Amino acid sequence: MKFPDALVEGRLIRRYKRFLADVRLPDGTEVTAHCPNTGSMLGCQPDDARVWLSPSNNPKRKLKYTWELVEPLPGVLACVNTARPNAQARMAIEAGVVTELEGYRQCRAEVRYGAENSRIDLLLSGHDSQPDAWVEVKNVTLAEGGEGFFPDAVTERGQKHLRELTAQVVGGDRAVLFFVVNHTAIEQVRPADHIDPRYGQLLREACEAGVEVIAYRAALAGDDGEPSGHLTLVDSVPVSLEP
């Protein structure tokens, strides 16, 4: 998938109130952009970092710009817009890139399920030999030494999702935790036990019960290291559950 419009580069001034970010454009103009990320964005908001915004021409929008990408370290890109991963995962599945989920003829989004009143990101059905697959998508942008960690803050919601996925496996369906790696320096994904040890424990218990965990990386950068304009998932990344 591609960004619908050309991105606008700027420099991050600050992120605040979770959903707002002040950015300085190349001509010196300062704008406030929507920050579509409820996490801590740990490591993805350094002062004066290069950032890229998507513009909108919708006159009903309060803010013209949405924060999409950041350069947290020189030559490294991360996508911080957590509205993107579900579409990234769906398009990769439908294109046959995700070999673990090939063969499903139908994909539905935001289907209600579970005892804890959840909505699954993607429900795959219509496979000739596999049961329905309940797919929960997570965005991975926290990087340390080449490893990606999830979550970047304590997440009771994420813990709930693991319980719901486990229940689907017990009921006879497939359940998949899909990490979308939106950070070009990440070579492996693992649970962030140092941030949310309960999440790590539940993830390991879910895997023992039969929940599948996969990770795929996005092609954020071109050969020159600059934003490619693409969010397409291109290849798998190993997942480690070692403590």
Score class of each variant (00 low, 15 high):
27 D>M: 03
27 D>N: 12
27 D>E: 08
28 G>Q: 06
29 T>L: 09
30 E>N: 09
30 E>L: 09
30 E>I: 15
30 E>T: 15
31 V>Q: 09
31 V>H: 13
32 T>E: 06
36 P>V: 03
37 N>I: 02
38 T>A: 14
38 T>C: 04
38 T>M: 09
38 T>D: 13
39 G>W: 02
40 S>H: 11
40 S>Y: 07
41 M>D: 04
41 M>L: 13
43 G>Q: 05
44 C>G: 01
44 C>A: 04
45 Q>R: 15
46 P>S: 08
46 P>R: 12
47 D>A: 15
47 D>V: 15
48 D>W: 14
49 A>F: 11
52 W>P: 02
53 L>T: 06
53 L>P: 04
53 L>R: 07
53 L>K: 06
53 L>H: 08
53 L>I: 10
53 L>F: 05
54 S>D: 05
55 P>S: 14
56 S>D: 07
57 N>W: 04
59 P>L: 07
61 R>H: 09
63 L>R: 14
63 L>S: 05
64 K>R: 15
64 K>S: 03
64 K>W: 02
64 K>C: 04
65 Y>L: 09
67 W>F: 13
68 E>W: 01
68 E>Q: 15
68 E>G: 05
70 V>R: 04
72 P>G: 01
72 P>Q: 02
72 P>F: 00
72 P>K: 00
73 L>G: 01
74 P>N: 10
74 P>V: 14
74 P>E: 10
75 G>T: 11
76 V>T: 13
76 V>I: 15
76 V>A: 04
77 L>S: 01
77 L>A: 03
78 A>L: 00
78 A>N: 00
79 C>R: 03
79 C>L: 14
80 V>G: 05
81 N>K: 04
81 N>C: 04
81 N>E: 03
82 T>P: 00
84 R>C: 01
84 R>V: 14
84 R>E: 06
85 P>F: 06
85 P>S: 11
85 P>V: 12
85 P>G: 10
86 N>W: 01
86 N>F: 01
86 N>I: 13
88 Q>M: 15
88 Q>I: 07
89 A>W: 01
89 A>P: 03
89 A>L: 11
90 R>S: 07
91 M>F: 03
91 M>P: 00
91 M>C: 03
92 A>R: 02
95 A>P: 00
95 A>K: 08
95 A>V: 04
96 G>W: 06
97 V>A: 08
98 V>D: 05
98 V>M: 06
99 T>E: 14
99 T>F: 00
100 E>M: 06
101 L>Y: 11
102 E>C: 13
103 G>L: 14
103 G>P: 11
105 R>C: 09
106 Q>S: 07
107 C>Q: 08
108 R>P: 00
108 R>D: 08
110 E>N: 13
111 V>L: 05
111 V>P: 02
113 Y>L: 09
114 G>C: 12
114 G>A: 11
115 A>N: 08
117 N>L: 12
117 N>A: 14
118 S>F: 07
120 I>Y: 02
